[in-house]
Write a protein that binds this DNA or RNA. Structure first.
Length: 564
RNA sequence: CGGGGUGUGGCUCAGCCCGGUAGAGCGCCUGGUUCGGGACCAGGAGGCCGGAGGUUCGAAUCCUCUCACCCCGACCA
């Protein structure tokens, strides 16, 4: 392709709206342009990458027996009423104003609708139906460029089985296909077991990649593969020390000491000798949550332990409940439920708030002094703590969800009446699974993982073109001729090549654009090398450069691409 | 939805506090010089300053309302 004929509006400066790397480079490289918050147009280069990702997905889905559908984005609302998801999605679902339609945020209902009309017998199962299409969600806050948009491309597939045993097979097929897809795309990913949330069902896994643009915080152990959202992640840590003798309770005057750090500094003690208090409300009654030192309360775990929704107490409520303000609250004398983190189990000689301002209580022995104290895992895992599986240190970082696979079970087939007849004539709901991949996220995540200060660095699998041929100084006719000849030579040999044939762009401009656009191999045809019948070949990723005879260029490039 | 920020030529931004003929750099067009890491010289085009209303002799600038976009949070299949 001649670059002079391709629409690639590159930007030298960082557009004001872009913050995350992938967004910046996609914009600067002329891959995408914004149309509104969370709405993007894909320009020719960007769309080429999207199509490559789709093709990889298609191949792997077809390989497990998937059949591609093309489904409407415009859906009659009443179909969504059948499963109650109009209400479930709420404001996230787009509603059409002048007709009773919604814009599909996903397609379980539509698949199930067709299945109930078409699938009758166990003989017709299992099935895997998939689609790669635009979905619409009225995100309250689109962000990070293409990573969270109001309209986005998603591969969604749906499995239909006669039993949970065969569902497991379909699920496993997808699990394997997903590993292949993300592997082929060149992504470094990991898998998190997750609760299936509002999708319903019995099991699910998230495919994730580490990224500062991520929206989820996860704990990950690379050696053994343990990975969990930090909301539920666990780690192995030492409990607080129990000293041989429990002191009596005593008050300590601690004027203006509010935080654990201040307390430790004031008394010159270790944070493990302290118990931090946090007050929450559960069902309108106060609950004191005791944590060791500065450990963070994990509200997800707390809700689970208490068994109901919680909210933090407002600062102005604290004094009524405990007699003190935040910073001086503690378990001794606290009227109401108290729950402590497991790390504090057995702890004695602890220091905590005295429930009167500017005082702390020392010598607390939780077993002795706090009756009916419950313990639960309430803390948030921190980096460096030991993996619960293999004891190696855990990493904690943010990550982006690329794909999610669910065992749906019969949630949709039940509510929509999608049944099949078994061997004995009995009627049963179809057992379903659903499996999504965010296509643009694959692109964005790849860039997040593969870039440098100059621009993107594509892998062979996703690159819009494998080779970027830069003709330099093309105002000189003999140089234009020579580099055009090289272009034709490569093109005729079947290489995927973008030829920067712009007549008046300077060398520096071409170099910088090429690094920004990120094709894996650059071929630089400059005057000096051409005079020796040579060109320079540069590997984008490593910066390695080779002088190559034009006659042997084809085989050299083949060999090089083989290795990339 | 709460908090913060920003809207001025295609892009990045200055000007706003303290009202008085709308600016710079990059990009674009013309001519010339350069020609392997975003070059230089000369000339040129392009903006009713997000929108509406108000105050004023006069508003990019002050006031009110509104819209859009970005960031943090809430939410998130």
């Amino acid at each position: 392709m001649l670059q002079s004929q391709l629409f690639i509006p590159t930007l030298k400066e960082v557009p004001n709206d872009a913050v995350v790397t992938s967004h910046v480079y996609m914009l600067r490289g002329g891959y995408i342009r914004a149309l509104g918050a969370g709405i993007y147009s894909f320009l020719p280069l960007g769309y080429k990458v999207v199509k490559k990702i789709c093709e990889i997905i298609r191949e792997e889905m077809d390989a497990i027996g998937g059949q591609e559908f093309h489904l409407p984005a415009l859906n009659p609302r009443e179909i969504w009423e059948e499963t109650g998801r109009v209400e479930a999605f709420g404001d996230t679902m787009f509603h059409v104003k002048n007709r009773d339609y919604v814009l599909a945020p996903t397609h379980e209902e539509i698949i199930t609708y067709h299945a109930r009309k078409v699938v009758n017998s166990y003989k017709e199962l299992p099935q895997i139906w998939y689609q790669i299409q635009t979905k619409f969600r009225n995100e309250p806050r689109p962000r990070s460029g293409v990573i969270r948009g109001r309209q986005f491309l998603m591969k969604d597939s749906y499995s239909m089985d006669t039993s949970y045993e065969t569902l497991d097979k379909s699920y496993l097929l997808h699990d394997e296909a997903y590993r292949k897809i993300f592997g082929r795309c060149g992504l470094k990913f990991f898998v998190v077991g997750a609760s299936s949330g509002a999708m319903g069902g019995t099991g699910s896994e998230e495919f994730m990649v580490q990224s500062p643009a991520g929206e989820d915080t996860v704990a990950h152990c690379e050696p053994c593969g343990y990975a969990a959202n930090v909301e539920v992640a666990i780690s192995v840590i030492p409990s607080v020390r129990r000293e041989p003798v429990s002191k009596d309770l005593y008050d300590i005057s601690t004027p203006n000491v509010k935080s654990i750090d201040e307390l430790c500094q004031f008394l010159n003690i270790n944070e493990r000798q302290t118990a931090k208090s946090r007050v929450y409300f559960a069902n309108e009654s106060p609950v004191l949550v005791l944590m060791s030192g500065n450990d963070e309360v994990n509200e997800t775990k707390l809700e689970k332990a208490i068994g109901s929704g919680i909210r933090p107490a407002h600062p102005e409520e604290l004094k009524d409940i405990s007699g003190a303000d935040a910073g001086s609250i503690g378990p001794i004398g606290f009227k109401g439920k108290i729950i402590a983190d497991l790390r504090l189990k057995g702890g004695n000689n602890l220091i905590s708030g005295a429930n009167k301002n500017d005082f702390h209580t020392g010598g607390i022995d939780l077993e002795r002094d706090v009756k009916n104290l419950e313990f639960a895992d309430l803390r948030t895992v921190e980096a460096g703590e030991s993996c619960p599986n293999c004891s190696k240190p855990l990493q904690v970082f943010t990550a982006i969800e690329l794909g999610h696979i669910f065992k749906l079970g019969t949630k949709y087939s039940d509510s929509m009446g999608a049944n099949y007849i078994d061997e004995t004539g009995g009627e049963h709901p179809i057992v379903m699974g659903s499996y999504g991949i965010g296509v643009e996220r694959v692109m964005a995540c790849f860039i997040e993982q593969s870039h440098d200060e100059k621009g993107m660095i594509w892998s062979k699998a996703l690159a819009p073109y494998h080779i970027h041929l830069l003709g330099l100084n093309l105002k000189k006719e003999h140089l234009l001729e020579a580099s055009t000849q090289i272009y034709n030579q490569l093109k005729n040999a079947g290489f995927s090549v973008l030829f920067d044939d712009r007549i008046d762009a300077q060398a520096g401009v071409k170099f910088n654009d090429a690094d920004l656009l990120g094709m894996p191999v650059q071929i630089i045809a400059g005057e000096r090398k051409l005079a020796e019948n040579k060109v320079e070949v540069k590997v984008r990723k490593t910066g390695e450069r080779f002088d190559v005879e034009i006659i042997s260029l084809n085989s050299f490039i083949s060999g090089l691409l083989e290795k990339l």
